[in-house]
Amino acid sequence: MVLVYSDNEKLMKELLAKARELADGLGKKVTAVVVGSGEAADELIRYGADRVIVAEGGPGAFKAEEYADILTGAIEETGSRIVLIGSTKSGKELASRLGGKLGAGCMIDCNRVFLDSGELTVERGVYSGNAVSVERFNSDIKIATVPGKAFDPLEKDDGRSGEVERKTYQIGEYASVVARVQEMVSQGVNVEDAEIIVSAGRGLKNREDLKMIEELAEAIKGYTLGCSRPIAADLKWLPEDNWIGLSGHKVKPKLYIACGISGQIQHIAGMRDSSIIVAINKDADAPIFKSADYGIVGDIYKVVPRLIEELKNQ
């Protein structure tokens, strides 16, 4: 049995496609687990699940402690040996806790998951994008988390059938309480699909100056804004959607322009697959220049307006 769980519907469908492939290769079945009302349960059958378990959740918002108990129940009942979980922040903490609880091998952020001579094999980036490690499992239960867009979902097949069951698993009592959940404002920006990204870093003096960066992005068609971690996480000038790097989004546009970004390895990890990288930084020794195709040493407040002008003349 291959078990699949994600709190993100889109990711769940991507995982189902991979789970289907693994299960078919091993002659096993795919179980998807959803927690709560289970409105979309039938839909998951159409995207590749043989069985959907709609598990009763805890009393409040998501808690990894409770979800790890739910998944433990589902794994035991279905005899699942491969567990695929979506690599959202909550998915990762859930998978890791489950690994600890079950003493199982767990691999986080696997970009590739495949069978090699019938053995589950995964690949993940290490050393901040400088290397890929290829891993296998020694444990009976094998857990892997997978980020978005690693796999394409299957085409929806309205003819597929399967069972949907409601279950209640035993959930432990934990002293933690989720007191508040505040949704972050999302502008629905999708940096992963962007062809051209103009990114801002701490070289920006004020939030208002983002306008200048936006203008540059507009001057080149394919308008998408990116940023370094401090702009999103410390200053909160831009939402999480725009955060690029090891702990943010991984992007691969044909053109990436870094404005006032020093080019620390954790930022590079998120944009190293770009076709062409341009850097604008006033410090000639900034590491970003080593990772750039074209670099201009200069003040962004002078270079960016000049660049906008030049692009408009094109």
């Binding site: 890929v132 499992f137 444990s139």
Partner: peptide
Amino acid sequence: MTRTLDVRGVPMERKNIT
């Protein structure tokens, strides 16, 4: 519970025109 089969470098080539 896991074993590393291989660690492959991912080199990055850039033009480095500054």
